[in-house]
Amino acid sequence: MTKQLPPTAQAAVQAYIERHGAKPTVLARAPGRVNLIGEHTDYNDGFVLPAAIDRDTWVAAGPRSDGQVLAIALDEGKAEDHFELSEQAVHHPESGWRDHVRGTLAQLVPLAPLPQGMNLVIAGDVPMGAGLSSSASLAMALLRAAQALSGDDTLNGKQLARLAQQAENRFVGCQCGIMDQLTSAEGKPGHALLIDCRSLDTEPVSLPKGTTLLIAHSRVRRGLVDSAYNERREQCETAARAMGVPALRDATLEMLAATPMSDPVMRRARHIITENSRVLSATQALRSGDMQGLGELMAASHASMRDDFEITTPAIDQLASLLQNVVGNAGGARMTGGGFGGCVIALLPQALVPAAKAALEAGYRSPEGLPALVYLCEAGAGAEAIHMTATGTMEG
């Protein structure tokens, strides 16, 4: 199948040609993701129900022969990074996107044959700092690009997702779970993914026809490494140890009630235990077309994130309330992502989209007085590598 490149990919290809005087050998793309329900359960070996979205990071790539990597980020003003391709990655003084590139490629070095260096141009339309996994999208696109350049595809999507997670945990410094990377790796058009974060088993769950994923960005930018994200993970691990279980996935409310622990740690654990149950119930609601039931579960999830896990903000709470009032019994709305800002997801009928957008315009302003940014998305496909043709099209 041959099709025209989308504008973001075209921009990456054109920038590559301008910088190197030749077309890239391969293109790779990987989507962002939105989580319908199941927040912070992934690193507790639990269940999540995300969907890949039709917004991607693209990497135009070609080989080098000097063991070096030259990476250019179009979305950062064509900023560059030049470093040695090595398992022993060195942090860049400015960290940021450069550390994501360095740390991700370093994970692949000891496991797979790689070209002797590579040129990379990166461009994307996944909003950054919004809770839509722009970093996981970048990592998966980089890994697919490097794989395609080497001609070796022995590592599958799950294995690449693990490597991308390792880069976040070990190099970037964010103790995230596997959800973002695995969703970017294995997304399926028109479907959410029920993920068991212990076994990494995934089950596609069809989204009802005629529904839209409306994502409303609060314009409160998130920064997981600098936020309380890592603290929440430590509290969850403390609760699991207190109850004598490997992870909170194995705990029950009865065990929680019988185990002495501080109030904040207890509430963190209660969120995880109840959220895991809500994910499984929400999956059944989707499969049976019970949108009212799904909406009630999404509302309960938001309340738990607000009161027990304490990761919402007043701006996020307001967005969720505005959207839920419009959606009514036809769907649901809740905060999505790691928290402390970012976005709210609403799953709603397409017919309600104009009313939802009007409600947001009339009823919401960020702390700086700005309206919400609204993204209308569909569930998209997972990461892939694409070989360029002579005419500048792609073959998938």
Rank of each mutant, 00 (worst) to 15 (best):
N169A: 09
R267S: 03
K188L: 09
K357P: 02
E368W: 04
A303P: 12
Q318L: 13
D75N: 12
I215D: 08
A285Y: 04
L132F: 12
A192R: 04
D201R: 11
E234G: 01
Q175G: 00
E310M: 04
Y16D: 01
L5S: 03
V90N: 05
G223Y: 07
G332C: 02
Y364Q: 08
L352C: 09
A61G: 15
V220P: 10
K23F: 09
P349Q: 01
G32L: 00
S262N: 02
D180I: 03
M128A: 14
G293Q: 07
Q159Y: 05
A269K: 02
A185N: 04
L319R: 10
I272S: 02
D42Y: 13
I37L: 01
G396C: 03
Y364G: 07
L213K: 08
L70F: 07
A61T: 11
M388T: 15
E384I: 01
R233P: 00
A73I: 04
G38A: 03
Q4W: 10
A123F: 04
V172L: 14
L248Q: 08
G46D: 12
Q147P: 08
Q350T: 15
T41C: 05
V90G: 00
G338V: 03
A239T: 12
D99Y: 03
R55Q: 15
L319A: 10
K23Y: 13
S304Y: 02
R221W: 13
D81V: 08
E80D: 09
R249T: 10
V48M: 02
V225C: 05
D125S: 07
G103N: 06
G342S: 10
H387Q: 12
T313V: 11
L348E: 07
I17M: 07
T25H: 12
A71Y: 09
C236V: 08
G328Y: 05
Q147G: 06
G38K: 01
P314T: 12
T57V: 15
N44W: 12
E361N: 10
W58Q: 04
A130K: 11
P204Q: 04
S321V: 10
A15V: 06
S321W: 10
L114M: 15
P113R: 14
